[in-house]
């Protein structure tokens, strides 16, 4: 048992070479210092500003060996793990949104209501109640179907993030 624990510890503590296709960037507000080796006392070889795109080459006890991908003068070295963020990418369909067209048709009626699908069944006879409930359920199901069309295009999300100076 002791041997297994020691082996596991050694595996955990040793550096991990990566074959990771995901993209990463410097997420810390103040950017990140790049060190010559995974030790704070070693030389700082460069400073990367926030949002610099990087590739992760190796991970070792809270330090990540990185290489920049978006600069002409390629920088490589070690940065603190905490300064790095993963570039999240949606795996969803990239189809264009039918957002506004779907919305208009859903609420179209002779007197377009601002609020829809609210049950108003008080005072109706039993079969009237049942039919009002059916109609309300039908209308609710239509609204759910409309909600399914509310996909926003990836480029719109990217612009939204960029304009807000949020993390890409």
């Amino acid at each position: 048992m002791r041997l297994i624990i020691i082996t596991a510890l050694m595996l955990g503590l040793s550096g991990t070479a990566l074959a990771d296709d995901a993209s990463y960037y410097i997420g810390a507000r103040s950017g990140a210092d790049v060190f010559a080796s995974p030790n704070k006392r070693t030389e700082i070889t460069a400073h990367l500003p926030r949002k610099s795109s990087i590739t992760i080459l190796e991970k070792r006890r809270g330090w990540w060996k990185i290489e920049t991908t978006d600069t002409a003068d390629r920088v490589s070295g070690w940065v603190f793990e905490g300064a790095v963020r993963k570039q999240y990418q949606t795996t969803r369909s990239k189809k264009k949104s039918s957002f506004f067209s779907g919305f208009a048709s859903l609420f179209r009626s002779p007197e377009p209501p601002r609020k829809t699908a609210v049950l108003g069944v008080r005072g109706l006879e039993d079969n009237g109640v049942a039919s009002a409930e059916r109609a309300a359920t039908e209308q609710a199901n239509k609204i759910v179907k409309w909600m399914d069309t509310l996909d926003v295009p990836d480029d719109a999300v990217a612009s939204f993030i960029d304009e807000g100076d949020l993390n890409p």
Binding site: K115, A117, L119, V144
Partner: peptide
């Protein structure tokens, strides 16, 4: 659908788009 049946949904495309 049951949530919508209880409260109704607001017809407000611009704000809904922003939320999405």
């Amino acid at each position: 659908a049951r949530v919508i049946t209880r409260y109704g949904v607001e017809d407000n495309a611009a704000t809904t788009y922003y939320l999405n």
